[in-house]
Design a binder for these strands. Structure first.
Length: 216
DNA sequence: GACCAGGCACATC
DNA sequence: GATGTGCATGGT
């Protein structure tokens, strides 16, 4: 079974090659993107990020001082803009009160503790916290998302009602703690999910992983 | 026009 | 603890 996850990774990597994740210029852009992409397609997130860059407010300090209403108006293309503006503000409040707005200070905190802190921020759930830990700070934490669950479910690695941490534990107990590996694996699962493991129209017969076990 | 996208919090039972 | 709902834009 240990080889199963590894062989999935190998097949995906052989088919797609390196994905060069996360698509961002720096750790802060990763964090903003992680919050903006909640239940949202990445193209819409890119529009919102571009808006923030054009307005020259995509830095912790600038965003911290920007009124929430104005922030919301700038990130409209990402959808859920009111709630996401509020969540970004929550994160900034945490960043400035706990670390004086300094991501470097945040990055040296041990990942189990940092994860707990992140989860206390309203608007940061398990996936967003883990995406920040892995892609902003290179901590060896496996990120589980809807594609991960769908692919693993169709290949019978997990059960229908397995929760986030069950799936995460499965991955982390069978793979060495290896940030570059987790980085690439998650990115490959998203890529495969987008191209082959669609919700309504799965294209399993074309998928590099081969036919899935569950025709759903 | 329905469905979906790199979730999360909150209300209710 | 499980289940349902609101949040919203833009592509297919």
């Amino acid at each position: 079974m240990t080889s199963t996850l590894r062989s999935i990774y190998n097949k995906l990597y052989k088919h797609f090659g390196p994905q060069a994740w996360w698509p961002a210029d720096d750790p802060w852009e990763v964090i903003v993107g992680a919050i903006l992409t909640q239940n949202t397609s990445w193209v819409n997130v890119e529009r919102a990020l571009d808006n923030l860059k054009v307005k020259k407010v995509l830095s912790p300090g600038k965003l911290y001082r920007l009124p929430e209403k104005k922030l919301a108006a700038i990130i409209v293309p990402a959808g859920y803009y009111n709630i996401k503006a509020h969540r970004l503000k929550n994160f900034l409040e945490y960043l400035f009160s706990r670390y004086g707005g300094d991501l470097e200070k945040m990055s040296v905190v041990a990942s189990p503790l940092l994860r707990e802190e992140l989860l206390l921020v309203n608007g940061v759930g398990p996936e967003t916290a883990d995406a920040i830990l892995l892609y902003a700070f290179q901590k060896p934490v496996f990120v589980v998302d809807a594609y991960t669950k769908r692919i693993f479910l169709r290949h019978k690695l997990i059960a229908e009602n397995d929760g986030y941490h069950t799936v995460q534990f499965l991955c982390m107990s069978r793979l060495k703690p290896d940030a570059p590996l987790y980085n690439e694996f998650h990115a490959l699962l998203v890529r495969a999910g987008k191209e082959f493991c669609l919700k309504r129209k799965p294209r399993c017969e074309c998928c590099p992983l081969g036919k899935s076990q569950v025709a759903k």
